[in-house]
Write a protein that binds this DNA or RNA. Sequence first.
DNA 1: TCGAGATGATTGCATATGTAATTATATGGG
DNA 2: CCCATATAATTACATATGCAATCATCTCGA
Lengths: 145, 145
Amino acid sequence: MARAKTSAWPPLLTARALVIEAIEQRLAEAGLPELAWYDVLWTLEQAPSGRLRMHELAAATVITRSNMTRLVDRLEAAGLVTRARDAEDRRGALALLTSAGRDMRARMWKVYGPAIAQLFDAHVSEKESATLRACLLRIIEAARA
Amino acid sequence: MARAKTSAWPPLLTARALVIEAIEQRLAEAGLPELAWYDVLWTLEQAPSGRLRMHELAAATVITRSNMTRLVDRLEAAGLVTRARDAEDRRGALALLTSAGRDMRARMWKVYGPAIAQLFDAHVSEKESATLRACLLRIIEAARA
DNA sequence: TCGAGATGATTGCATATGTAATTATATGGG
DNA sequence: CCCATATAATTACATATGCAATCATCTCGA
């Protein structure tokens, strides 16, 4: 669909930037880590037994592998994650969530959840929200194919 | 609207990250600058006589002022933009688009435009696109209020 | 009109990122 | 079985970013 002047892409970029900015500010004010940490903690919490290979974690969060290495370094230093060698493939490293990591994710959600509700969802009806999700999931699927 | 499990926010983040990744790759392969440059060039091209104050440019593109200072440094070094003192307010600096800047924006659009069409708009109907835009513009308006 | 405080832009410093090596282990063809 | 090649993760280096000063100019009230 060529749609030069009416694509939703430019406002998507702007909306994301503004909402992220506001969310980061709230997290910082609450003395909590940045959003990227939440992403990793949440992704691990979703995974069976709270563990994932580094490359799976990187793919799931759309962060490059080398950045994930360094992000997990920081999370590990903060005690939120630990690393273990993978017994199956000894090249591989597993990142696994600690209970401090779980706690931190929950604490961050107390700020992040309401922020999403107020900054994003409040301006979208239930029906629109369903449409948005459906479109975005299609785009994700195509991009990953 | 509290919508914990069904918010469009998480897929928005993922979709944006994946699409940006693909776009940056195409720009790099074409030997073109990164997307952030496009944003600045386009914003200036929209502005009356292709010029904006640094803080206006920063606000429009949702980039911090200090980063805009340095981004314009690079654009200036590449000959795509020049700086001028503002006669009205001598604290202020104006960024203004050069004709090389206009050309570059056009060249980048040859890659960027089709990429948006293929990676984003192709997966959204006309009607959905209108809904997306409307929602996102509402979110932007609220965030800027 | 003068000085205190606000505002616009830049800069310094610590930290984070992208990209291209590098290291270690796995895998498949001869 | 062994070597060439692929893959997982990390690291090295250059570059970009966020945040807190800093510098210049403006504005407003005593």
